[in-house]
């Protein structure tokens, strides 16, 4: 059942490369492959190179970074809460991150101080993570977790709508679609610079929590008796998740279910142990998000499809399946 982790990582890396290349060849303007390749060499069209460098590459880089953050934090949360249904979108962390970002953006604060945008997302996500831990204290049971997630998401989404309606700019009210359904369209290198360093820090923190998370397989008491500081581990996962998720939401809106789909898809291949699963989920999240973003552009719809819709179309049915399977186990 468990393939060698190296093989799985290799397959994912290969998929990532293919998706990356495909991502660069697809865009709003129909540019033939020949022209793209010519632009990379000398004597190619400078405009095409510009499109690759300023529009398509940032988009792909963001998809990779945001996807890695989402996949990894999903796996980490599932280990910490010992619940396979946990992930930033489901438990409401992405929604609170969006609220934080929206507050920073429409107040005009981020116009004066650019870092306010990812920081708004970061603090929003941090608040959400802390609230989830508080609301599920003593009971990592699914019902409590999902309810807490629903409460958080509902409140944060309502808050986001409120901020957007109060914003002076008339376009703000329509931008709810971006914040609640996520999109990587027309993101620039500026967005990459705003989000990726934070996401990178979060990914680093979460990867380093993997070893201690192993002990949680035996429950918190036994883990503590084995010398693991569960309190410190919790802080590490909370901060790591907020860093890996919040700034991503701030530049791309709410993208859900990646943190749910990726760990579940990879467990049959690499097992459940955090030290092996977490790094693979970072890679898997990047692949999934990049492919989903490709799907947004390839669908035969008039405008581009929103990224969060594609991940929801994949994730919600799977979530339902998980719920019914768990009910069946406890029936």
């Amino acid at each position: 059942m468990n393939r060698a982790p190296g093989t799985v990582a290799g397959v994912q890396a290969g998929l990532l490369l293919v998706a990356l290349v495909a991502s660069l060849t697809v865009g709003a303007a129909d540019i033939p492959l020949r022209a793209l390749l010519a632009a990379l060499g000398s004597g190619g069209d400078a405009d095409v190179l510009l499109i690759l460098r300023e529009i398509r590459l940032p988009r792909a880089l963001l998809a990779i970074a945001i996807g890695a953050g989402l996949g990894l934090s999903g796996a980490a949360l599932q280990a910490l809460l010992r619940n396979p249904l946990a992930e930033p979108g489901v438990v409401g962390i992405s929604a609170t991150g969006a609220l934080g970002a929206v507050l920073a953006f429409y107040s005009g604060f981020s116009a004066r101080f650019a870092l306010a945008l990812p920081l708004g997302g970061l603090f929003g996500a941090l608040a959400g993570t802390l609230l989830i831990l508080r609301l599920t204290r003593g009971s990592g049971a699914s019902l409590a977790l999902i309810l807490a997630g629903v409460i958080l998401t509902t409140f944060a989404s309502a808050g986001t709508s409120l901020v957007l309606s109060l914003a002076p700019n008339p376009y703000a009210a329509y931008e709810i679609i971006f914040w609640l359904m996520g999109s990587l369209a027309d993101r620039s290198l500026d967005h990459v610079l705003l989000a990726v360093p934070f996401i990178g820090a979060g990914v680093w923190l979460l990867l380093h929590a993997a070893r201690d998370l192993e002990a949680l397989a035996l429950g918190e008491d036994t883990a503590r008796s084995l010398g693991v500081s569960v309190a410190r581990l919790r802080v590490q996962v909370v901060v790591g998740t907020a860093l890996a998720v919040g700034p991503g939401v701030a530049v791309a809106g709410f993208i859900g279910f990646v943190g749910l789909l990726v760990p579940h898809a990879l467990r049959p291949f690499v097992g459940s142990r955090p030290q092996r699963l977490l790094p693979q989920c970072a890679l898997g999240g990047a692949v999934l998000t990049l492919l989903a973003d490709l799907g947004c552009r390839l669908m035969p719809t008039t405008g581009e499809l929103k990224l969060g819709i594609v991940t929801a179309l994949l994730g919600a049915p799977y979530f339902l399946y998980l719920l019914t399977r768990e009910r069946a186990l406890h029936a």
Binding site: A79, R82, E214, A215, L216, A217, L218, G219, D221, T222, S225, L226, G227, V228, G271, S272, R273
Partner: peptide, 26 residues
């Protein structure tokens, strides 16, 4: 000090060897 609680649970699939190996964490 080694501690084994009442009705010990395992939160995710582990092989016997992996479970035993957790005892070496300290």
């Amino acid at each position: 000090i080694g501690y084994l609680p009442q009705m010990p649970q395992v939160a995710w699939p582990l092989t016997v060897r992996e479970l035993v190996a957790l005892g070496r964490l300290p």
